[in-house]
Amino acid sequence: MKGNSSIDVLMIPVGNAISRHIQDFTPAYTDIYNRAYEALLTMGIEKDAAIKELQRKNEHLWNVTKSSTADNERLRRALEEITDWNGEYSAQTVKVMIEFAKQTLENSPLIGMHLGEGDKE
């Protein structure tokens, strides 16, 4: 088995503890030592996999945040475009704004995260 220097350091007290009870380098000593080594190695592999999964989820949430920010900016620009010169909205403008906001929310990736599929209309 290929060694791992960080695990080798952790195994020093394990080897010492085994030596107190079993003669060094007997088959029993080697078997116990190797199983402990494999457990630490497996734990490291699982930890690395968990870290990669967390990084993947973090990247996904970052992309959702960027997408949501872009949606908000498009909504802001659209509202600015349909605002009358004096800042008041006509009844038709309000209907357009409501429809635009509804479509934006329906297409937003955050809806599924916060409301769940059953709440999305």
Rank of each mutant, 00 (worst) to 15 (best):
S5Q: 11
T30N: 11
Y89R: 11
E88N: 13
Q103A: 10
N72T: 07
E73R: 10
D71I: 14
Q92Y: 01
M11L: 11
G116D: 05
S90L: 03
L110R: 13
M11Y: 04
A78S: 15
E88S: 15
L79T: 00
Q23R: 15
A36K: 09
L54E: 13
K66T: 12
R74N: 10
M113F: 01
L54G: 09
H60S: 05
E106H: 06
A70E: 06
I18D: 03
L41I: 02
G87A: 01
L110Y: 08
T26M: 03
Q55M: 10
A39Q: 06
Q55P: 01
T26Q: 03
M97T: 05
R20D: 08
Q92H: 03
A101S: 15
S90D: 03
A91M: 05
E38A: 06
D84C: 08
W62K: 13
N72I: 05
N72W: 07
K52H: 00
E99D: 13
E117V: 04
A17V: 03
R74M: 05
L75T: 04
E53L: 12
V9N: 02
I32V: 13
M97W: 02
T65M: 12
T83A: 10
S67C: 09
Q92D: 08
S19F: 01
L10Q: 11
A49W: 00
N63L: 11
A17G: 01
W85D: 13
K52R: 06
D71W: 08
Q23L: 06
A36C: 15
L105C: 07
I45F: 07
L41K: 14
L105Q: 08
A50L: 08
A36G: 00
G87M: 06
R20A: 08
N4D: 15
E99F: 09
R56A: 11
A91Y: 01
T69S: 14
E59S: 13
K57A: 08
E99A: 15
I7D: 00
Y37R: 08
M97E: 05
I111W: 12
T83K: 05
A50Q: 11
H114M: 14
V94T: 14
I111S: 15
D71R: 12
T69M: 12
D84V: 03
I98R: 01
M43W: 04
V14K: 09
E99P: 00
I22N: 03
N58V: 04
N34L: 14
K2V: 06
M1S: 14
A39D: 05
L115H: 07
D24E: 14
L79V: 01
K2F: 09
Q103C: 02
G87D: 02
M1E: 11
R76M: 11
S19D: 07
M113H: 11
L75H: 01
Q55Y: 06
D71S: 11
A70F: 12
S19L: 05
T65E: 08
